[in-house]
Design a protein around this nucleic acid. Structure first.
Length: 210
DNA sequence: TGCCAGGCCCTCTTTAGGGCCTT
């Protein structure tokens, strides 16, 4: 068992990256980071910064995110921002929507500054696929609209998306607590839900808490 | 020159293919 009975077990970082493309291994870089710290179910801190990757972003990314080359030209370096962000996330566990994507970029950017995180990821998309099978699709925006979760009307910016993922995460925790008469859903159970076949979700929870 | 992600998940599956998600 890992990280039990300490304060860290009650804290998660919900994060989102805007990037120059889809492939961290192919040289794409982070251009904006947004993150929300949740402690004992409450938002206690936030982190947001643009970061200058030293390469131009293409027009698709400018249009998709609203982040322009002009904005990035005056932004702090990736090294400066990621150093500060590494201090923010410490070794807390993390949540992201399609976490495989964000975890790859986090690892790549931390590697560049010779830092690392021991925190583990849970994926809100994989969990939502299992919990909400009647939603048209499992894009973050669709899930937020479907559940009528609060948004600031901004999409595809790092902090705005991290805030929406936070709302979705808290919604999923609340729904599980309600459905299974629980007072607390451990992080590693959420990770397990993300891995279990859809058809076995109920059985997993029943086995866990019966 | 041409190409260009990766992993999950479903099914017309497992000796595979294609859609979904993220930017």
């Amino acid at each position: 068992m890992r990280k039990t009975a300490n304060r860290r077990a009650d804290t998660v970082i919900v994060l989102d990256f805007e990037t120059t493309g889809l492939s961290a291994a192919g040289g794409d870089r982070v251009i904006e980071v947004g993150a929300v710290r949740i402690e004992k179910g409450k938002v206690t801190d936030r982190f947001q910064s643009l970061m200058n990757p030293g390469i131009r972003v293409d027009t698709f990314i400018e249009d998709y995110t609203g982040i322009t080359n002009k904005m990035l030209k005056t932004a702090p370096t990736c090294k400066a921002v990621m150093t500060e962000f590494a201090d923010f996330i410490e070794d807390f566990d993390m949540v992201a929507h399609n976490a495989a994507f964000d975890s790859r970029f986090l690892a790549a950017e931390l590697r560049r500054i010779r830092r690392a995180s021991r925190g583990e990821f849970a994926c809100s998309m994989l969990i939502a696929r299992r919990m909400y099978q009647d939603v048209p699709n499992h894009k973050l925006g669709t899930l937020v609209a479907f559940h009528q979760l609060p948004t600031g009307g901004v999409f595809h910016r790092a902090l705005a998306d991290a805030e929406m993922t936070t709302q979705l995460w808290l919604k999923m925790l609340n729904d599980l607590e309600d459905d299974y008469q629980l007072t607390k859903i451990p992080f590693d159970l959420m990770q397990a839900i993300a891995r279990v076949p859809k058809s076995k979700l109920s059985q997993l929870l029943m086995d866990k808490f019966e």
